[in-house]
Design a binder for these strands. Sequence first.
DNA 1: CTCGTAGGCGTACAACGTACGCTCAAGGAT
DNA 2: ATCCTTGAGCGTACGTTGTACGCCTACGAG
Lengths: 212, 212
Amino acid sequence: MPRPRSLHPDRLAEAALAVIDRDGLAGLTMRAVAAELGMSTMALYRYVADRSELELLVADWCLRDLDTSLPPAPQWTDQIKILVLRVRDQIGTHQQAVPLLIANRQRSRPLLRWAEAVTTVLDAAGFTGTDRVIALRGLVGYLNGALLQEHLGALGGTGTETIAAQTDFPMMRDTARAARHVSPEDEFAGGLDIVLRGLSRSGPAPAGPASW
Amino acid sequence: MPRPRSLHPDRLAEAALAVIDRDGLAGLTMRAVAAELGMSTMALYRYVADRSELELLVADWCLRDLDTSLPPAPQWTDQIKILVLRVRDQIGTHQQAVPLLIANRQRSRPLLRWAEAVTTVLDAAGFTGTDRVIALRGLVGYLNGALLQEHLGALGGTGTETIAAQTDFPMMRDTARAARHVSPEDEFAGGLDIVLRGLSRSGPAPAGPASW
DNA sequence: CTCGTAGGCGTACAACGTACGCTCAAGGAT
DNA sequence: ATCCTTGAGCGTACGTTGTACGCCTACGAG
């Protein structure tokens, strides 16, 4: 019976993400989001309890279309690989929001759906109990770390260039120089392959058609 | 000839770390650090240009005793393992400072020394060019992600308990319950073993006494 | 038309980082 | 012993942040 809301929560998330994409994560401000929506600052608090709730909205919005259906690959490692790559693909150009995704990794519904799919694949591959816990946390650890690295100072950023220019650490200098020729995609996928290769050897008895 | 400084920069870092350990990272404030030192807020700016420089001091201080000598293990994977575990051991009880370490990972001298050691081991194991870049970034990615996970919501934290209590995602519920019986040390080392196992299979031609 | 509910907003406040400029402590030079 | 120069230390103040509080009013049920 009372006055109806004029905004859908999704509109809040869109506006906040627009601010982030334009001004960076540091530019994300209650005032900035309100201005983006043409509302007053305090009007936002009719939709969210506080800033962290707005950030959760952004995290959920970023991954709203995340496909968490089980990939039809024959190998379970390929299934996991596809699931992980889907997350990175969904983030796309919104790398600035990565810290928000990490901070809300245990509250975001899309991420929980995603984790459910990953654990389902792991379970089918024979991972149970402690093995599954460690496999999942290892995967998520790599995912978070790699995304974060991409977010703050990607390959070829100023940090890498500084290392490439100094002389105190020659091995790192060479590595930083070689890093100039590695695309973010190759880097991410390469690291993921390492983790997957390790996983395929760490589980319980090998299962599935591709025994070795 | 002018009035000498009354503080060593290390004292700043100690004070800041004391604040962090007591009040958390959110409690790290120029005013709080000044109060810890018994100085006025603005006196800090005679030692650091701004807050981020203070944070760098904290990061360096945390890892000041990091042993970056090459471990004498026969297998290069064990050398890497020891190097990575040393970082986690040095952080010890200062998990609250982990975001500062990550943010300053490319400026902190101890971390550069450490990375030089890691790349040296990788080089000796036959990793060169792009392979070494991806191996290093993969390792650092996992390290950062795992430390961050431990920092915000360790296993058995409220986040994990919430997941263990819900019913929408049964596989995650079971995994969260099993996670209650995994210590942070086992989790970290388990994930690291996965990455190392993957690395040992991803490099160029296997080298060293332990061929297979 | 009336009225209760809740949406939207204006003001205000505490806490933050830090710019600016002052005072004076502490050596070297005389 | 005196002075002078340098910068350590600090007090004040400003702009920006999140948000508590309370007012006004648009809206839909009756």
